[in-house]
Design a protein around this nucleic acid. Structure first.
Lengths: 146, 146
DNA sequence: TCATAATATATCGCATGCGATATAAAATCA
DNA sequence: TGATTTTATATCGCATGCGATATATTATGA
């Protein structure tokens, strides 16, 4: 039996690759559900942040999603075109913009409420593992945030 | 004390979001290391697949990485421009292309060997959790593959 | 207070990802 | 065998992500 050398560059050994691939595949699972309400995955994330707390600054949304304005600005402009949100200057800080849900944007929350449940059904991972993964990922995210 | 409604659309409840955010953040951690050998993260993944097994078809590489040719073709062309790989028609199947490492491509493996170790140092997650996350992600990936 | 630094947002360019579609070659089947 | 289907790759268009840079506004400090 030949001695198996440990190959640190083997795909199976990587930390990031399975996370990267899983992220893309789950996003793909979301797409048919999101098509029904006309959102992309990232647009859906922004809407979720606003459904939790309306009237947030661009940077606050970015902090929640780990996204910078170079990604958010074009994305928010598309949501404005779709009349789901609007943007006004913060009167107490003329540099900042505050993002606000429109009535259509608020109403969309009702149509979106079934999506997490439907997605969970199509993802076949035991509940305890989902909890473990979520906890480990959030631990990492919070450690990077600081 | 007000009763807390369960909000299925809260960011904290999502499965995909922490995976998606972690994937992007780890990729960002790779970038300074990959800059030293002049690769992007996805290009690095392709090279890893070829370092494990040279002379693979485009589709075989795609299967390993869960990527289609619409992503791989331009990416492989960039690696050809960098003279790290080459592409020849498969003589037994004229539809297919076989991707082969150049001498530079093979040599690059030596420079890359330190990267996994260096990355692991900058990612602050306990080893058991890394193993759990990897196992759960791969279980999901394999379940989707079929 | 006035120059300097920090902060909020925007813009540019490049590299993905991916659905939809096109093309050519191989496999299958009536 | 000739038509149909499947498979391998390529192309197009759109939507991110993000490093680098620019601009405007606010905060800070000599």
């Amino acid at each position: 039996m030949p001695k198996e050398e440990f190959n640190p560059l083997a795909l199976k050994e990587q930390i990031c690759f399975p996370i990267y691939a899983t992220s893309r595949l789950i996003t793909r699972l979301y797409q048919p559900l999101l098509d029904e309400i006309g959102l992309t995955y990232t647009q859906y994330l922004v809407m979720m942040v606003l459904w939790e707390n309306d009237n947030q600054k661009v940077t606050e949304i970015g902090n929640r999603l780990f996204l910078n304005t170079n990604t958010l600005t074009p994305l928010l402009n598309k949501l404005i075109q779709k009349k789901l949100i609007s943007k006004q200057r913060d009167e107490s800080d003329e540099r900042a913009f505050i993002v606000t849900l429109s009535e259509e944007g608020k109403a969309m929350k009702t149509s979106a409420e079934c999506i997490p449940e439907k997605l969970a059904q199509s993802v076949d991972i035991p509940l305890e593992e989902v909890a473990l993964v979520k906890s480990a990922m959030w631990k990492f995210l919070n450690s990077v945030r600081d």
